[in-house]
Simulated scan of single mutants.
Amino acid sequence: MNWNKGTRQVHRWLSVVFPVAVIVNMIVIAQGQYVAWVGLLAVAPLALLLPTGLYLFALPYVTRWRGGRATG
């Protein structure tokens, strides 16, 4: 598996984990048992989604700029 495919897989799995963390966060808030670390459950995947998403967004442009062919 090359770097691009690995980044795509990580981004896909993080995009699955993020809504689950948000749902858990909402359930805990609805129960009135909110603690700070539960809020961080949703922020952690989001913080990792940002760099992987930016990398995947820029990938075709950088590849074209270098004169290569996009792979993935």
Rank of each mutant, 00 (worst) to 15 (best):
L54W: 09
V43P: 00
T71D: 06
I29N: 08
V16P: 05
Q33H: 13
V38K: 06
Y55F: 15
P51A: 05
L14I: 03
A21F: 08
N2A: 04
V22H: 02
V22C: 08
L49F: 00
N4T: 09
R66P: 02
R69S: 07
G39I: 03
N25A: 12
L49T: 01
K5P: 03
Y34G: 03
V24K: 09
P51F: 04
Y61C: 06
W3S: 10
L41T: 08
A70M: 07
T71P: 03
Q9N: 15
P60K: 08
H11A: 03
A42E: 03
P60W: 11
W37Y: 10
W13Y: 15
Y34N: 05
Y34M: 10
A30M: 14
Y61H: 07
L59C: 06
L54P: 02
F57T: 12
K5T: 07
L54G: 07
N4C: 07
Y61T: 07
A42N: 00
R66V: 07
V24I: 15
W13C: 13
Q9P: 02
Y61S: 10
N4I: 13
M26S: 10
A44C: 07
S15V: 08
R66M: 11
P51T: 05
W37F: 09
P19A: 12
V17R: 00
P19I: 13
V35Q: 10
S15M: 14
V28K: 13
G67V: 01
R8M: 12
P60V: 07
A21T: 14
W65L: 13
G67D: 00
W13A: 15
V16S: 12
T63I: 07
R64A: 02
I27M: 13
Y34W: 10
V28Q: 15
M26R: 13
P60A: 12
L46I: 00
A36W: 13
Y34Q: 04
I23F: 15
G53I: 04
V28R: 14
G68S: 09
K5Q: 09
G72F: 05
V20C: 11
L54F: 09
Q9R: 14
V20N: 05
L46H: 00
A42S: 09
A70T: 05
H11P: 01
W13Q: 14
W13T: 11
R8W: 12
Y61R: 08
L50V: 11
I29S: 06
L54H: 04
